[in-house]
Design a binder for these strands. Structure first.
Lengths: 214, 214
DNA sequence: AATGCGTTCCCGCGTTTGCGGGATTGGCGT
DNA sequence: ACGCCAATCCCGCAAACGCGGGAACGCATT
């Protein structure tokens, strides 16, 4: 069985490293490096003239437009292409921005070529290949970003009032949309304040949003 | 070289599957299953009498206390132990809650034993072993949870006012901490409202928190 | 010199809020 | 049957807020 070659693009400003990866990938069974570019701009320009690849290996430390900036643009034009970040950086902010931009994987340049090849297959199969340390960082960020999910025992009605409050509505407006008396809304509001241990709507909204009560 | 055995606990209500994994792990070089439990409660009780393991394989669909609930408790008592979820479920909510609870990995029960063994080593080495599909789900959730990071051109002073506002402070209090006149704060507030296109502090706080302006 | 903008300060007025008091109904559990 | 509590409604008042005006200064750009 002869499976079709996986066509890969490489965006990397270091010519030496770029050629090394390009050649190594070309010699790996089932892969072909059909394009290598020294900058994001060159790659974007090539989209208009060349056939698109299945996967793109991307450095983040590029001259001009950074790798992080280009991810969303690539994803926009080529939603089906797996963009895999391949870099030396492993700080939270870069990882975070890469993922939020839509990267399908995040590898380190120290990875051997067969791991890179395996990762490309994994990404195309719907996976998310990541260096072990990176993966841990992602989980940690996730957990930190996560909701403490405080439970203050708000009733259904109070939740409803909270939602309206978060939308910036006044008591009068809330009363109108929920078809209640102004005084009733006021009453619920006081109960919410007591439960959340705040005494202004601003504090209540901040607490609700921070702790994902809404 | 004789590396020390890795001691693993198993929390899984299906006795057949539990024994199968336990035996397979026991026969794998470098591993020892030193405890297997049919419920979270049994495992928590065993913490008091038995020596603690290096890793715990945990099912989420347990009778009584669910696997998701028990993760934070385990992490609390045993911060150094790698808790790896091993389950058939792969819905976003369960994955999300497991990670937020502090799980070090998330595997599917379809994984062969050598992959499980490898994952345990990976977790103990600071990695985050995940099934490929699960990893992709995590990245997708991450990107969705991500901040749109709107930029409304708030000045440094206005940012400062926003932060104080998010803390639930009144205009008078903000004026006090920033050593400004009440009227100045009022002025800044109006400019913030105009830039964010809101007309209440509630709306401003909601927008600021949702779009990570603070 | 002129323009724009951020920052600071001030007045007044009508609206909204927070909170102190209440009251009544209906469901739920022991 | 009794208490508990969520949910609904009401009054009044001091405080805070939103917004309409305004003015002044510094600093950078044009």
């Amino acid at each position: 069985m002869t499976e079709p070659r996986i066509e890969v693009w490489l965006i990397e400003d270091n010519a030496t490293f770029r050629r090394a990866v390009s050649r190594a990938l070309g010699q790996t069974a089932g892969f072909a490096c059909t394009g290598d570019f020294g900058s994001a701009e060159q790659a974007l320009a090539a989209l208009k003239t060349q056939p698109i690849p299945q996967a793109i290996l991307l450095d983040v430390g590029l001259p001009g437009m950074s790798g992080l900036e280009v991810i969303p643009r690539l994803r926009e034009r080529l939603p089906a292409v797996a963009v895999i970040v391949l870099t030396v950086f492993e700080d939270d902010d870069k990882i975070f921005r890469a993922i939020c931009g839509g990267a399908a994987g995040y590898l380190l340049k120290t990875s051997p070529i067969d791991e890179i090849a395996h990762s490309i297959r994994e990404a195309l199969a719907g996976g998310a290949p990541m260096n072990a340390r990176i993966a841990r960082r992602v989980l940690d960020m996730f957990a930190r970003l996560a909701p403490p999910r405080g439970d203050y025992g708000l009733t259904a009605r109070e939740q409803e009032i909270m939602e309206a409050m978060v939308q910036g509505k006044t008591k009068k407006e809330i009363a109108a949309v929920l078809d209640l008396s102004f005084h009733t809304v006021d009453s619920h509001l006081r109960n919410i304040y007591r439960k959340l241990e705040v005494n202004t709507r601003t504090g209540a909204v901040a607490k609700a949003l921070k702790e994902k009560l809404v």
